[in-house]
Design a protein around this nucleic acid. Structure first.
Lengths: 239, 239
DNA sequence: GCAAAAGTGTTGTGTCTACACCCATGT
DNA sequence: ACATGGGTGTAGACACAACACTTTTGC
């Protein structure tokens, strides 16, 4: 690759997008929007829009999402990546910065008529490069479930372990045992018991204890899985 | 946050930047460039430049870096984040997409006179928000050392375990035992012995075996530390 | 009492760190 | 022989998954 002094500086249009996930009916779903305009008119796409003057990317995506869901319901929002393939938008050169957003499972935002939840495991054909973004977002989410407290973002304020299990199962895409989920999250002090319990259902059964996440913002809980810093217990300074 | 139909679509200038790391003299260092122009004339900054028409962000940063180091020496390059604070560049609105780049420890690229390596633990004052980018890049690198084979990117083709230890120590910022480093990386099959050995130095000592990374591109080696998918061994389909 | 659901005890396995010890070479 | 640096053996701590078992409720 060689420096090309003839290359013209580009001031590309810049869009923001978000893959907003919620666990609904025990399945991970993503908020999609049916395009009203060409290109890809009628196809499903991620919600978002153009970056405006004077705003950051994050405030821009929050502004665009506000037309779809109440922003107070967005419990987590993080930047994923910026896409720049010149041909990614047939309508003309456009960069797009993608975000991952999460919504707790106990809210059901009123949606505009052109917006719907879709199962991530049964996506329709998506416009642009949006399918790749959804998959990247799911990978990011899955990874962070292992080494952060990101579960707080799709869980209600308080919940039982088996409710939480349903959420983790949906997000991870495989079975999760409540026994082990409880052990892992308690051992790492992500969960605290609230002291209250949920009433048994009509079928009986032992009432479940209610828990909540100790911290409701992202926290890394397993920084160094291997190659940890050496043990400081034995160290003693010389007089 | 409310939708503002008056907001004007922005076509911001877009820059690309890279925090290029190399372990030099046993210390993690980053390539910095002394600015010739205002703003921040004379201050140190990350190398990069403007996005040009028709190129992707990645090809753009490769093009700009080519003026500083031979691109063939860049063994890893990944996108970090896109910065968008309106005031981040006093010269006017500009987005910037930051990359993390790595160079193996056995090359010593010829640098232009305005470019120098600086220890990451003793950074000078940096222009713009570049200090935050360098720290983000280091965090990303440290994290990936735990669960990927990213070490290949700052290691030579072949190396002894204690040479590799020096690299990991520099990147992680703490002591690393060669014993454990060898065990972890062999257990995970990141390293393969080449069968050759390095000659002893003048001081004698047992000649060290030479290893190389099994794969020289990024690979996740510890996908699920916890909450793994259940064991499939016992499963048997019913007739 | 019995079914249902939640939660605890326990065991086996694997991974990691730390440290003692052994190996191969130069002088 | 002995210093030097490389490498292996091994033990203890811990985390994890799996599964048996107990607890607490409704009917």
């Amino acid at each position: 690759m060689v420096y090309d002094p003839e290359a013209k500086t580009d001031r590309p249009a810049h869009a923001v997008l978000a893959a907003v996930f919620q666990v609904r009916d025990g399945v991970l779903q993503v908020l999609l929007w049916e395009r009203a305009l060409e290109p890809f008119k009628g196809a499903w796409s991620l919600p978002g829009g153009a970056l405006s003057e004077g705003e950051t990317l994050e405030s821009s995506i929050r502004r665009h999402l506000a037309a779809k869901v109440d922003v107070r319901e967005l419990t987590h929002l993080e930047q994923l990546e910026t896409l720049s393939e010149p041909a990614r938008n047939p309508g003309g050169r456009e960069l797009a910065t993608a975000y991952l957003g999460l919504i707790p499972s106990d809210v059901d935002p009123a949606l505009p008529h052109d917006t719907r939840w879709h199962r991530v495991d049964k996506l329709p054909a998506l416009a642009f490069d949006h399918e790749a973004i959804v998959l990247t977002a799911r990978e990011r989410l899955r990874g962070k479930l292992s080494y952060t407290n990101i579960g707080f973002a799709f869980a209600p304020e308080t919940f039982t372990i088996s409710e939480l299990r349903t959420l983790y199962r949906a997000a991870l895409g495989h079975e999760v045992s409540s026994t082990n989920l409880q052990r892992v999250l308690l051992r790492r002090h992500l969960l605290v018991p609230t002291g209250t319990r949920r009433e048994s259902g009509r079928a009986g059964g032992r009432p479940a204890a209610l828990y909540s996440f100790r911290l409701r913002r992202l926290e890394i809980t397993d920084q160094f899985a291997v190659l940890r810093p050496p043990d400081r217990r034995a160290e003693q300074q010389q007089p």
